[in-house]
């Protein structure tokens, strides 16, 4: 109703403003997309064209998939993919089970020492040991050069735990009580009522955790030197950043170690899964931000 009224009253001046506004937004969207589009074009161009420069709106000189063949046949990419999928799938699964198992009791008023436990999980949000103590811990647990170094140290975070807890707290107690009156036991209540009702928040947090695992690189950098334990993002860092820095420090910065199309293909190969999932999962990601803005 109010929208229609607005439209009727729109003066020519405000219509112009709306067009300018839409124009600026469109321009911003193009700027957001162009770098990725550029990488796509570079990756499918023959090497000679890929490093030719200029605005790349469409592949010139034909399409060549040789960069992808090269990247996908590189050992560290294949191993990296395997390790990244491992840490994403295993890490996210364990994380979600642990988040739920901690969040449900924390949402219960009857939990003994509830305030103490809340504080217990909250303090690490404000203070942490820092880089070296964490490194020494991982080392003393024997996790250096071990795949589990990617999973165990980052199983849980306070922020996500609070989000799940707040969501579960909002589920009315009366649902549980009426189920109990009907003879449902603890596990029936958990699996038939609480978990189905908290699926939205679990999906959101799972997506965040999964993206975090997919993009994580620092643990691979400091905990694992074994080539068999390389992750996709560490491969990406070595190809895009370390290799380039090494040559820009020594020579003029002109000579690249790997060709532009290989760089482009590496980026696309690494972000393809995110690009594929993103359009369908976007609303879950966004919903989580809203949930997170309700503190308790």
């Amino acid at each position: 109703m109010s929208r229609n009224m607005n439209r009727i009253r729109q003066s020519p001046a405000s219509r112009v403003l709306h067009v300018i506004n839409a124009g600026i937004l469109l321009f911003l969207a193009v700027i957001m997309l162009y770098p990725m589009w550029d990488a796509v074009i570079v990756s499918i161009s023959p090497a000679a064209y890929a490093s030719r420069g200029g605005l790349k709106l469409w592949p010139a000189g034909g399409i060549s998939l040789s960069a992808y063949e090269y990247v996908l046949s590189t050992n560290s990419v294949r191993i990296g993919y395997r390790n990244t999928i491992f840490r994403t799938v295993v890490g996210t699964s364990i994380s979600m089970v642990m988040y739920f198992m901690a969040a449900y009791p924390l949402s219960k008023k009857v939990l003994p020492l509830r305030r103490f436990w809340s504080l217990y999980f909250l303090i690490p949000m404000f203070f942490s040991g820092g880089l070296i103590p964490e490194y020494l811990l991982v080392k003393s647990l024997g996790l250096l050069d071990n795949l589990w170094a990617y999973v165990l140290p980052c199983l849980m975070g306070t922020y996500n735990l609070l989000i799940v807890r707040n969501f579960i707290s909002a589920i009315p107690d009366s649902l549980e009580e009426s189920a109990r009156v009907d003879g449902a036991n603890f596990f029936v209540i958990l699996f038939r009522i609480i978990i189905p009702l908290s699926l939205p928040v679990l999906a959101t947090v799972a997506l965040w955790v999964a993206v975090g695992h997919w993009n994580a690189w620092f643990d691979a950098q400091i905990y694992c030197r074994n080539k068999q334990l390389i992750t996709l993002s560490k491969y990406l860092r070595e190809t895009l950043i370390t290799a380039r820095d090494a040559c820009s420090d020594s020579v003029s910065g002109a000579e690249a170690v790997v060709s532009r199309s290989v760089e482009g293909a590496s980026i696309i190969v690494a972000i393809a899964p995110i690009l594929c999932v993103y359009p369908f999962a976007q609303r879950y990601f966004v919903k989580g931000v809203m949930v997170g803005s309700v503190k308790g």
């Binding site: 957001m32 770098p35 490093s51 895009l240 950043i241 972000i271």
Partner: peptide
């Protein structure tokens, strides 16, 4: 949809894209 997307790229990817775009040799 388009403007939320870069949030999901790691900084390695963003830095890599920047190196391609800003290169003094073949950057746009």
């Amino acid at each position: 949809t388009v403007t939320y997307l870069p949030h999901f790229m790691s900084w390695i990817v963003v830095a890599g894209l920047m190196r391609v775009l800003l290169s003094p040799v073949d950057g746009v």
